[in-house]
Design a protein around this nucleic acid. Structure first.
Lengths: 203, 203
DNA sequence: GATATATTTGACCAAATAATTAAACTATAA
DNA sequence: TTATAGTTTAATTATTTGGTCAAATATATC
């Protein structure tokens, strides 16, 4: 029964992920999740007790995925410029496969800021900064990136890749009306964003 | 009674705006709005019939405000570089006063894409492009901004000012933990974003 | 194969919440 | 002052929805 057990619990988790990402915690209905999984609603409570616990399971998984994606950049033996290109290629490719994540994630944090506690321990900008500084002292100096401006620099990079997805539905609509293709725009953005940021810091 | 009439209807609208921006359509409660306005819940229905109609009134007002803010930039007699500086100063100052708007707006569109119809007629990127092209032909050529890359360029500008607010709660939390001040970061962003974009296109 | 355990289901419950209603109250006009 | 129309309120209703429960079914163990 372990086999079927896993299958059901997994089906629930996957359906819950899809529905929560689409509708958010407040907009999602337990019945929608059950229907999406093709099972009886009571099974959701059998495996996860409450909507809140089910949501938390989904949210924590997603938060983990999101932040583990940032780490490898610093391990690579690349120049700062190459790391920037590497990051945009990887990150935008990831978001292409999970386009609803930014909107879901940011909105749920907005709804309930207390949830930040569940993953903020994984984030350490200061450590990231000291690592960066150790690896790229010369380049950072040349590009005028200091401890002072790290937040500006980091959020600009995040903005360049995340914003098109956070505003995806709106942006795609406007583009369609104007005769542009959103998927094409995103594909080209991997390179555009990297060029843009590198030019910006090279001054 | 017209006096009091306007007062009540206005109070409802303002409270509804505050609550909807904070909680979203799904998370907002009619009772919360009534409490916020200090009135009886039935008055909400007396003036706006349903939650949906009240929400639509609020949403349309906000959508109108948001897009009217983009237009004036083009009227100014400034160089492209000056226009970029002007835009970030104005736009970020506006968002400082309305920090919850981006998250609210993008999320509600995500929840119900059909609402885009209510304001998309006000958006015409092609017209904006021809206007820009007429005013700054030389600069655009120099900066390598073409009809092809306008979406990349425009969304990059939007991203630089909107993203810090769309991700405000998360970003502010991380910054607080790391010893940075979010309000200071935002104030400095007016200039940083302009410098960043101008450097980026100057190559 | 019989018994125990785990899983699944449909019916049901209780709380939350949007919406309605009738009565009370207030202001305006005759 | 009285009548009328407009406004506000408290009580109530209807619906939605998260959660429970007991019975039914499937699976594992002996």
């Amino acid at each position: 029964m372990v086999e079927n057990d896993k299958q059901t619990e997994e089906k629930i988790f996957e359906s819950a992920t899809a529905v929560f990402i689409d509708k958010g915690m407040d907009g999602a209905r337990m019945q929608d999740i059950a229907d999406h999984a093709g099972i009886n609603k009571s099974l959701l409570h059998y495996y996860y007790r409450t909507k809140e616990r089910l949501f938390n399971a989904v949210f924590e998984k997603i938060a983990g995925q999101l932040f583990r994606r940032f780490a490898p950049v610093l391990d690579e033996k690349l120049s700062l410029e190459e790391k920037i290109r590497f990051f945009f290629r990887e990150h935008i490719t990831f978001l292409q496969k999970n386009p609803g994540l930014p909107s879901f994630f940011l909105n749920e944090i907005n709804r309930n800021p207390a949830m930040i506690k569940k993953f903020i321990r994984h984030i350490d900008i200061n450590k990231l900064w000291t690592t960066l500084e150790a690896q790229h002292k010369e380049e950072l100096k040349k590009y005028n990136i200091t401890r002072e401006t790290v937040p500006q620099f980091m959020t600009s990079i995040a903005a360049m890749s995340v914003f098109p997805f956070a505003g995806r539905v709106l942006i795609a609509s406007i583009m369609e009306k104007m005769g542009y293709d959103f998927d094409d725009y995103i594909e080209k953005r991997k390179e555009y964003a990297a060029d843009f940021v590198i030019s910006a810091i090279k001054k």
